[in-house]
């Protein structure tokens, strides 16, 4: 089973890196780039352990995010699961 986790800065948190990239894209001539936000993407491969419910996998992923992958003071996370 594969999971993709995306960790992004909360909308309320400024992202100077994103701003710099947005500016560079405009400088390169790409018109109409209104905003860029930089995040992190984790591709996680999970061993197939028989009998796992989707709820259990989701709960594991949420714990991974809350305990390590995201700093929930400034970041939020989302995930998708591929069977």
């Amino acid at each position: 089973m594969k999971a993709t986790v995306v960790v992004e800065l909360k909308p309320s948190v400024l992202d100077p890196q994103g701003k710099a990239i947005q500016h560079s894209l405009s400088t390169l001539g790409f018109a109409g780039v209104e905003d860029v936000r930089v995040g992190k993407l984790f591709r996680i491969t999970l061993a197939d352990i028989g009998g796992q419910t989707r709820d259990h996998v989701e709960s594991q992923l949420r714990q991974m995010c809350e305990r390590l992958l995201a700093n929930t003071v400034v970041e939020h996370f989302s995930y998708t699961i591929e069977e």
Binding site: V13, L14, P16, Q17, A20, N71, V73, V74
Partner: peptide, 17 residues
């Protein structure tokens, strides 16, 4: 200390990178 939770808040990239 902020990551461990002994102090509140977080330290982010410097504003001018």
């Amino acid at each position: 200390l902020t990551e461990v939770g002994l102090l509140p808040g977080a330290l982010m990239r410097n504003e001018h990178l």
